[in-house]
Nucleic acid binder design. Structure first.
Lengths: 229, 229
DNA sequence: TCCCGAATGCTCGAACCAGAGTATATCTCG
DNA sequence: CGAGATATACTCTGGTTCGAGCATTCGGGA
């Protein structure tokens, strides 16, 4: 048997839910929604069913019964196996112990920022700031609501984490926007000049050569020799 | 033609690289490595070649020539099309303007934390803290090195962002570990009791019923009625 | 009574991705 | 000077993921 790769955390969610009681897939998805776990784990129907199949194939869960209510499609109810319980604990422990490298899309965007001009970037970042502020209030009111319901913090730590990351991103973006706008970001002058020339050109876009030349001193073919002063 | 989905940021990286000059796929991957962009964009060979194919199919890049050196496999050199340049700018703008929901694995883990006992969790978090501290120093020395090479900050913003997120996570985890250990986290008493009973049981693991009962007051079938005091 | 829309519960295909595998060329080091 | 390590440059395969689509049932209003 293929030695299971732990790629989709939705599988962990399934194991965790079945820990409580046997369920059929649709019920799992509804339960995850009800508990807002779909904010922390990517949930979509197609993936859910294939994840369940894969868990069955690896003996971590098993069909407990198939039932039907009225004339609806039959539902298969699954239960956790011993191997599944062990796997849940192991996997969860691993995730807590060892940070995994993530690739946020915004980070990718930052990598290629110089393609756009500084003024455009600053404008876009201001829009991002507004959106982030909205997200912050959304998350924070959701947290308050959970507290008001008497749900102890232990059960909503994921929201706290989310909030912490959101605030960190917001701070970063605010600082970045400011440093571009007021020109204190190192290299912004060169960046601006590059695009000033470009906007005079036919396309209005940065010309390939310009960018290549600007980068050349730092990334020579021989490998990042520092530009001699 | 299928209206291209913007899922893999590696495609954006390809567009950005070809903006500078035509390249063949292997050269792209090496350039990304050299510039450390593989820290911000998930790069692997298999994906690179399929991403390139897909971009060709959608007319965003095109084969410029095929060449061979000595007896090596032939290389196809690609160049950016006008449509590709537009797409790069649009996509990049979108990524900067609009935050996209990410699903960090650690957040998923936090969602299912109560499966483990508080002492185990605290121990695992202490290991995570050590690992995160190591990552922080790694990222920060890399940044300093880049600065020492004279590379202006505009070209390494992604590292700054990474560092900001890392610090935020570190702070969060340190706080969480402390609040579990000293018992100030709300609900930790109940959590501890749950597992104290479990460890006396045959399996040494939390019994399904225990967890279900603990959760029941907050997530009733009718939908999250607050437990009446 | 009958139709609309929401909820229930799953199926399917196409795209996507990861990473091992392949094959040659060059470099290195005793 | 030969053998292994490293670099070059893909190719293949099989699993994963997405999201639209399908089929049924139920409740509620005209």
């Amino acid at each position: 048997m293929a030695p299971r790769t732990r790629n989709n955390p939705l599988a962990l969610a399934v194991l965790a839910l079945l820990w409580e009681r046997p369920m059929h897939p649709y019920e799992m998805s509804m339960t995850l929604r009800e508990r807002r776990k779909d904010e922390s784990v990517r949930l979509n129907f197609g993936s859910l069913y294939s994840v369940v199949d894969s868990l069955v194939k690896h003996g971590l869960i098993e069909a407990a019964s198939t039932e039907r209510e009225g004339n609806r499609p039959t539902r298969t109810v699954y239960r956790l196996t011993d191997a599944g319980a062990t796997e849940a604990v192991d996997w969860l422990s691993d995730l807590l112990r060892t940070p995994v490298k993530e690739f946020p899309q915004f980070e990718a965007a930052l990598s290629f920022l110089p393609l756009l001009g500084p003024d455009d970037v600053a404008r876009l970042l201001r829009m991002r700031i507004a959106a982030l502020q909205l997200n912050v209030t959304t998350v924070d009111t959701a947290r308050e609501q959970a507290r008001a319901q008497g749900l102890p913090s232990v059960f909503v730590l994921e929201a706290d984490y989310d909030s912490a990351l959101l605030h960190a991103e917001l701070d970063f973006v605010v600082g970045l926007e400011a440093s571009i706008t007021d020109g204190t970001l190192e290299g912004v002058a060169m960046w601006r000049e590059l695009h000033a020339r470009a906007s005079g050109s036919a396309s209005g876009r940065l010309e390939p050569e310009e960018l290549a030349e600007a980068l050349a001193p730092y990334f020579t073919p021989e490998g990042a020799a520092p530009p001699t002063a």
